[in-house]
């Protein structure tokens, strides 16, 4: 009976550990290595840094069908999992609109499949509307040039 209990406990622990390993973590520490998966390619932004005058940004790309993708955002020194997540479908493509806060938004696109993960670091800066308004007010006309 005792042996049976120990065996049950071991099996339960094994299952818990394996499920834990498959689930995306709640936080990721900066500098943590990104996993050796090859599941997604980010098309937009084209590089790891981008800037926009819009309050939102669409992250797009292609990936392996069935892979789960999560967005993490840097807050108080740690990357915290956000509500943005999706599973890549048969088309292999994804595009997700992310709301931004003013200033630099440090993000991780975390892709996970069968316990293997891949992290893609992105930095998207929201420049706000003040600069846009200033640019829009500049106008050159013949009267100005005279």
């Amino acid at each position: 009976m005792k042996k049976l209990r120990i065996l049950s406990a071991l099996i339960t622990a094994l299952l818990v550990i394996s499920f834990s390993a498959y689930a995306a973590p709640a936080t990721i520490a900066p500098g943590q290595t990104g996993g050796n998966g090859n599941f997604i390619v980010i098309q937009n932004p084209p590089t790891d840094k981008a800037a926009t005058f819009d309050k939102s940004y669409i992250i797009s790309g292609y990936g392996k069908q069935g892979v789960n993708v999560y967005i993490y955002k840097l807050e108080n020194g740690t990357y915290v999992k956000t509500d943005y997540s999706w599973t890549i479908g048969a088309s292999g493509m994804f595009f997700k609109k992310i709301n931004l806060t003013k200033g630099t938004n440090a993000l991780i696109c975390y892709a996970e499949d069968g316990g293997v993960s891949q992290s893609v670091y992105l930095q998207i800066s929201y420049l706000g509307t003040d600069l846009t308004n200033k640019i829009n007010d500049i106008r050159i006309s013949l009267d100005t040039l005279k």
Binding site: Q43, S56, S60, A90, G92, M93
Partner: peptide, 27 residues
Amino acid sequence: QKNDHSFAFELRLDKDSQQDDWGQHLV
């Protein structure tokens, strides 16, 4: 107004990912 519409070239979905090893159709 919100920005709820994007042209495919803005999202770079008019170029494929050059990934052939996922074994699926890419659009």
